[in-house]
Write a protein that binds this DNA or RNA. Sequence first.
DNA 1: GGATTAACTCAATTTATTTGAATTATCAAT
DNA 2: ATTGATAATTCAAATAAATTGAGTTAATCC
Lengths: 388, 388
Amino acid sequence: MIVQPLVKGSNAERSKHRNRQAVLGQVRLAGTIGRAEIARALSLTTQTVSNIIAELSEDGMLLEKGRLSSGRGLPAIQYALNPEGGYALGIEVRPDAIFLALLDMAGTAVTTERVAINRTKPDVVIAHVKALIARILTQVPAAQGRMLGAGVVMPGPFGVTGIAGMGSDLTGWHEVDAQALFEQATELPVVLSNDANAAAMAERINGVAQDITSFAYLYFGAGLGLGLVHGGQLVRGAFGNAGEIGHIPMPDQSGKLEDALSRLSVQRHLQRAGKDARDVDALAQLFQQSDPELLSWLDTASVALGHAMAIVENIFDPQTVVLGGAMPDEILDYLVEHAPLPELSVSNRPQAQHPRLMRGASGRMTATLGAAALILNRALSSPISHAH
Amino acid sequence: MIVQPLVKGSNAERSKHRNRQAVLGQVRLAGTIGRAEIARALSLTTQTVSNIIAELSEDGMLLEKGRLSSGRGLPAIQYALNPEGGYALGIEVRPDAIFLALLDMAGTAVTTERVAINRTKPDVVIAHVKALIARILTQVPAAQGRMLGAGVVMPGPFGVTGIAGMGSDLTGWHEVDAQALFEQATELPVVLSNDANAAAMAERINGVAQDITSFAYLYFGAGLGLGLVHGGQLVRGAFGNAGEIGHIPMPDQSGKLEDALSRLSVQRHLQRAGKDARDVDALAQLFQQSDPELLSWLDTASVALGHAMAIVENIFDPQTVVLGGAMPDEILDYLVEHAPLPELSVSNRPQAQHPRLMRGASGRMTATLGAAALILNRALSSPISHAH
DNA sequence: GGATTAACTCAATTTATTTGAATTATCAAT
DNA sequence: ATTGATAATTCAAATAAATTGAGTTAATCC
């Protein structure tokens, strides 16, 4: 058997692919930028960048944005990503529904679709997905032939683990190769991920973490998830199940973190008082009414969030922690403001560039959009490798 | 200002460097291996590998090990790393002493040095280091001109953080650029790191984690450290302070993790009973005598270790967790055996390839050897980048 | 003993980058 | 207004390092 290497070798073709990616990524990072500046940033010659830019423009990935004079010398022709140069599909499969979103190259949601389901068997899901994709492509014909790939979000954990059968798994999907299934159905390259990782990527592509390369994302799903981004790439763990922070015990013996800090937790808490808060809007309303039950939940949730911060900051030393997911903005804001940030933390630095905790994207579609963001990220950057 | 990219561009020269590294890494991974097999593993042609191997042999990095016939066809000439092809220096600076170790390419410690110090001011330390290096080079003249670099381990955290001034910082080093200082003194490329990260790398280069690409290392230093390896590379965090797991609160309100699980903790515990256990040997002796105080400490330490496992496993989903550091083997073994592994964990998988918790290297020099391992790792692999 | 298989080498080719000279457009100084 | 300095860009030639294809060598299989 071949001993699997950690890295593959390189040749001219692979170098070129990498350089194209790097140029695209640099254009995105800068917004608009000229060739010479790209060349300097990437340690390439202007000639090389010129060739690549010519190709990318030819392919419709870039737009000319006129010349920009900055000091002496010939003003540089500015380039920007063409939003319509490529599209990424996001697919989120939940126990009761399927969500789809189509992002353009700029990270803008061009269209979204959803369908309720009552059975999650693979063939049923795949049939729905196929139909929804067809609908999207008739709505956005420009995307035809310009699809970069599909990101798929499903309830984790993946594979057989100690937390299997905890209710988060999708029935019928245990024995199948989900990635292969979706690749066949979509005829696109597929990236599979959990909701927290996807949401984290969304923040990097189009949210508050666009200029942040190392951060953690605390995600309100059914439970509590954690997405880790390091050097601009997701840290997925050996088996793709990194970030199951919800199962960590609380410091006051009251159970695990997600017993106090999750959608399920707030729902249970409100239910005990006879109140129902199934969806985001209902929660937002209760918050607006300063509902005492909700406020009492927020108290314990804040404490739990503080504990989560202590863990995440000290283990990961991120530039910031982003809080988001299936919660109303107001509640996320409240938590961001009221969570007791641990003093004893490597992140408690006097002159920090970013706040230690900030609110990210929220709402029902967060993970779906994030799924598509996984694809955009892949198209615009490759994992670190700065052999100096 | 230039917008800093995450990746640099590639060209023929950088590709070649990368391929040389990849070939060396593959030889190390396999032990002995032929060119064709390397080519298959790295997705290169045999011709390319042939050229690289010729150069590496010329440079004295590889040794021919005869032909190995495996089935039909011309038997492949086997190659292995030449242990004397390159040397890595490990430097550990502690408040009371400086340790140096010289590793050859195979990861074997060729020689070690130590000196006690009573002042930690940079110029004092640097002078000692220079003298020790000179001594090492006269002992191992073969290393002259074949030094790959120096890994330096110092007490963290680096920069100004919320846990500064907790006693772990080295006095006099707050305002200096340690890396530049060591690079100047050693005239070698320098990698700076904390003890836990270095120890983790040592396990990958020459320990129990040689075939493991994603793992966590729990390190007994003064406190409790955590080294994270993902995809064969260290996860250092945004500011290089990832892995300060010791500061995380315990689930039973009894303080932080390292209050129960660290060298300081066991020393304090024994001191209260009037016993002194300054060094590893003393602890080993107490353990052999089944000292009741030590056993009672082990009880609480085991619980703390179980908690640490819950955190690390659920956040990182590693292939395994390695326990090591400045403790006697026997005590590490005891802890590995007695720590209550959390059932509720993504790592609690029925058919795991590796045990969830295993003992790594121990003893006084662990971090010093690890410091050198950082350099070897850098010489033998570059960060992941599998553009498919 | 001949066919088959696989590793390896040599020489020619290909890919993509770099290099160097020439061109163009702007700013700054006279 | 003219001139010189500066910087972006392009064209053509050179270069680095990979791949390709044909040929050689040495093992196993039948």
